[in-house]
Amino acid sequence: MSTDELVTPGRGGGLGDVIKSRYLLKLLVSKELKVRYRGSVLGLLWSYVKPGVQFVVFYIALGVFLGLEQSAGNPRGLPNYAIYLFSGIVLINFFTEALGNAARSIVGNGGLIKKIYLPRQLFPVASVWVSGVHFIPQIAILVVACLFNGWRPSLLQLAAAVAGFLIVTLLATGLGLLFGAVNVYFRDAENLVDMLLMIATWASPVLYSWMMVREKLGQTFFNIYQLNPLTVGVETFHFAFWLPTTDGAEAIPPHLLSVWIPVALAISAAVLLLGQLVFRRLEGRFAQEL
């Protein structure tokens, strides 16, 4: 065997190994779902309960008490604020669950990693896939609610939603690989991720309108704000699900389709590449560190 064929022990071929090990990925996703709901009465129904409770709390606090819901006595509010709010919550919940679980996936599967070798990237990627499974019933509820409110999206709006989901998936996978690897060596990474996830809901227009950001902080800060891929992802969901349920007079962020979606895709892809590079650099000593 030539030296060109030798590889460092414990290091795999990156995300390419995940594609080659699709069957193992399926087994890991199935295992995570079974372990998570073992002994649970509601099981997968928690995918409906958690976002439902979250939605009710935010809707009452912000839509009713703080007047973000448009009404006859409050014309400055957002029309169909319930749809606006839930379409953002659905996407941000997917991100927070995916990143939170992916960041803990290597340490959480330490026993398995120390016993046998399999592509380490499978663990954070499986965590993202599990979050995708939980995302499906939530998006189904959103679609039903939109249909009851006269939802008639265009193909462009549906394509924007797919692009938004792809942006957030790439971002969550990249950050999951990055923090999942770093967390093996520095357990403070978990606390940093928890802090980021706490900020995520408020750092994107889930609960409020993007216009508030521009009006209060100016165009320069708004441009910086738009560089957050989560912001663009949430805005694409508003464009696809909320906007068609209004009279069409509501504005979307300028250049959302022509500028910000491509920029967000590029940033998320760069984060994925960075996460993959860091993961491959650190994975060689996972078994020893765990």
Rank of each mutant, 00 (worst) to 15 (best):
N74P: 11
S87M: 04
N101P: 03
G77C: 01
L62W: 05
S47L: 10
A98P: 02
P51F: 00
A102E: 06
A102T: 04
R76K: 13
T96M: 09
A103K: 07
W46M: 03
G52W: 08
R76A: 15
I113L: 02
F95M: 07
G108R: 07
A98W: 01
G100A: 08
L85Q: 09
Y48P: 08
A72I: 10
F65R: 00
N80F: 05
S87E: 05
V64H: 11
L78E: 15
L62V: 03
A103Q: 05
Y48C: 11
G43K: 00
G110E: 01
I60E: 13
S71W: 12
T96Y: 10
L45Y: 14
V90D: 06
L78I: 14
G77L: 00
K114E: 14
V49P: 13
S47W: 12
V53P: 03
G108H: 05
V57R: 09
P75H: 00
G43T: 05
V64C: 07
L78D: 10
G43M: 01
I106A: 02
L45P: 08
G67N: 03
R76H: 15
S71I: 03
L112W: 06
S47R: 11
V53Y: 09
Y81P: 13
V53T: 08
V56H: 11
T96F: 04
V56Y: 15
R104V: 04
L44F: 14
A82N: 09
K50R: 15
Y84K: 02
N74L: 05
A98L: 02
S47F: 15
E69S: 13
P75I: 01
F65K: 08
L44W: 07
G88V: 06
G63F: 07
K114G: 08
L99A: 00
F55S: 03
S87G: 09
A82H: 15
G73N: 02
R104I: 02
G100V: 05
F55H: 06
N93V: 00
P51A: 07
L68N: 12
L66V: 02
N80G: 10
L85R: 04
S87H: 04
N101R: 15
A103W: 09
W46K: 01
Q70K: 15
V107T: 05
Y81D: 11
V56F: 15
V41S: 11
